[in-house]
């Protein structure tokens, strides 16, 4: 549905642009009419099906990790390479100041232009990317910097070289490393949270999700092709998968849902940056006072799914 609204909005925007410099009566009238229609159309976006969220989460205009870093942090210094084998631009990371406090920032990078997309492998990291992330996390711990991650990936790359270089090991050891970090960690799911490749940056004290971001065990396409041998039924799959921010909040996987502008983050990125900035401030302050961030994080993930086990509730309150 959002897809149709988007295409109609694009047509209106085009017409509006054409009318912009014209000051005659009919043009002004038409402009006002278009603005009203546009607002009305946007109103329809309030009612998002899971499938629409998947569409918005993948929207090419959606702000990505690089955008969040330049909007929310100062003095960003990018750190490249895993020191073992290769630099993977599919994960962007470095050191920066957040409201004056040094932090380590790590996120998936999809790239904006086709050239960047290809270099970043469309945000699907290789093992080197995860090993770089581990290296940066280790440094953050040594220098006492909190870690902030931005999650936006279709998943870890399922390719021949990635397998040869140990994609499974790279994700597993990142999960283990991250779980025990002695500094606070906040993860923000900004777009697509695709499977283990997303989770590898997601073992955090707080997991925040943008309103239209999704987070799931595999892509709806993958889900549909396994379940019904038909990737075309992805929309149906999305509805079953409980992958929206609201679902994840209810399941206890996300801690807070951050509202987006009507029609999605790409409609007004500045507003989204502001929301995320405020949320990070709000969550980071108490975490900085925590005596044992690793302990809190352990308990948080230890409890994942426990609500489903009747006996567990009694034995392990």
């Amino acid at each position: 549905m959002i897809k149709e609204i988007e295409s109609r909005l694009a047509l209106m925007d085009q017409e509006l642009e054409g009318l912009q410099s014209k000051e005659d009566g009919p043009s002004r009238l038409r402009r006002a009419q278009l603005a009203r229609d546009r607002a009305e159309l946007l109103e329809l976006c309030r009612d998002c099906a899971p499938e629409d969220n998947v569409y918005l989460a993948r929207h090419p205009g959606r702000p990505g990790t690089a955008d969040f870093i330049s909007a929310l942090f100062t003095e960003f210094f990018e750190c490249r390479g895993d020191r073992l084998h290769r630099e993977d631009p599919g994960i962007l990371g470095g050191i920066a100041l957040f409201h004056g406090l040094p932090v380590t920032v790590i996120g998936h990078r999809k790239g904006k232009t086709l050239e960047e997309n290809v270099a970043c492998n469309f945000g699907m990291p290789s093992p080197e990317g995860y090993r770089k992330a581990q290296r940066l996390m280790g440094q953050a711990e040594r220098f006492g910097r909190p870690v902030i991650t931005f999650i936006d990936t279709p998943g870890a790359y399922p390719g021949l070289e990635a397998e040869a270089e140990g994609q499974g090991e790279a994700i597993a050891s990142t999960l283990a490393r991250m779980s025990a970090l002695t500094v606070p960690v906040i993860a923000v799911v900004t777009g697509e949270g695709g499977s283990g490749g997303a989770l590898a940056l997601g073992v955090a004290n707080r997991v925040l999700m943008l309103e239209h971001a999704v987070y799931s065990v595999l892509s709806p396409e993958g889900f549909a092709s396994i379940l019904w041998k038909d990737a075309g039924r992805a929309g149906e799959a999305a509805a079953l998968m409980k992958l929206t921010a609201a679902d994840l909040l209810a399941l206890g996987v996300a801690d807070e849902v951050l509202p987006e502008p009507l029609g999605g983050a790409h409609q007004d990125p500045a507003a989204v940056f502001d929301t995320v900035d405020q949320a990070l401030l709000r969550h980071l302050a108490p975490l900085l006072k925590l005596r044992d961030p690793a302990g809190q994080r352990y308990q948080k993930f230890r409890a994942m799914g426990l609500g489903a086990i009747p006996a567990a509730r009694k034995e392990k309150p």
Binding site: I171, A172, I226, M241, V253, R297, M304
Partner: peptide, 18 residues
């Protein structure tokens, strides 16, 4: 991960690794 338990299955990866 078990598909039918969705994101909660995914979280078991973090839980066991931790």
């Amino acid at each position: 991960a078990r598909m039918q338990e969705g994101i909660l299955s995914l979280m078991q990866m973090a839980k066991t690794s931790a």
